[in-house]
């Protein structure tokens, strides 16, 4: 059963075709990779799914429901969260408070209830704080609970952003280059974290350049080049696909055949 479906999605910026007739199906409970050279349109696609940007043409369906005209906060409320390529934590807040904000969509208490310490506010605040503490533990961030997010180490910031995306109890998480700037050990640990999320029943769409991570976690991979979807398959299939190799490495001028095969 597909959880996310892109049907003929195009996004044009003036004359620039960032996405051109992209079709994609993400099945429930799978980890799907999205790869492609720089400028291929990967982040544009994530922005369109998460509602920060809207497609020029085509439809995006989440659990059969059209979401391509929705605002970002509505999309979060129905179960899609994301991380960013260049980390966008709330730097002036502690790690713990970042996770409280991440749970915003789950809260119900009104301002009036918090003004007068009414039971629903107190109850809700307790559960939100408890969940934030659990998430910190789950991502190995207990030692930075009260540290300002902006002063955390790079790896901790990446992990905190993932924890924050998980905080809203999403059904689908979009990860935009989660391992950028990480060393191989950290990358492998992050891969295991992704697999743990999948075990929890969460579907994941991950943009990644690191092929070892793709092999470690992905069930299926889509390849984007110049805004067009050029290939789709298992990680092993993709690695052998001549079109993909051409997109990444270019072609031999003489033979028009991929260099790697010679």
């Amino acid at each position: 059963m597909p959880i996310l479906e892109l049907k003929h999605v195009s996004r044009h910026f003036g004359g620039l075709l960032a996405l051109e007739d992209v079709n994609m199906i993400v099945e429930v409970g799978k980890v799907v990779g999205l790869i492609g050279p720089n400028g291929a349109g990967k982040t544009t696609m994530i922005n369109n799914i998460s509602g920060l940007d809207h497609p020029t043409n085509g439809e995006i369906l989440f659990q059969g429901q059209a979401i391509h005209k929705q605002t970002p906060h509505k999309i979060t409320q129905i179960g899609i969260t994301r991380t960013y390529q260049n980390i966008r934590l709330f730097g002036d807040m502690t790690a713990h408070d970042n996770l409280l904000i991440g749970q915003h969509a789950r809260g119900r208490a009104t301002l009036l209830e918090s003004l007068f310490f009414l039971p629903r506010y107190l109850e809700e605040e307790r559960t939100l704080r408890q969940r934030a503490t659990e998430l910190l533990a789950q991502f190995g961030l207990e030692h930075v609970t009260n540290t300002l997010a902006g002063t955390l180490s790079y790896g901790d910031q990446r992990r905190l952003e993932m924890a924050r995306a998980l905080a809203a109890n999403p059904k689908l998480i979009l990860l935009d280059e989660p391992t950028a700037g990480m060393n191989p050990t950290e990358t492998h640990e992050l891969g295991e974290q992704i697999l743990r999320l999948r075990a929890m029943g969460i579907t994941i769409l991950v943009i990644e350049h690191d092929m070892s991570l793709i092999h470690q976690v992905c069930d299926e991979v889509y390849v984007l080049n110049f805004g067009c979807m050029i290939a789709q398959g298992t990680p092993t299939e993709i690695r052998a696909n001549p079109l993909v190799i051409e997109a990444y490495l270019g072609v031999d001028e003489d033979s028009r055949s991929p260099r790697l095969h010679t």
């Binding site: 979060t76 709330f90 730097g91």
Partner: peptide
Amino acid sequence: QDEQAASNMG
């Protein structure tokens, strides 16, 4: 701190 990220938090 970040309007877009805030909207992505719901």
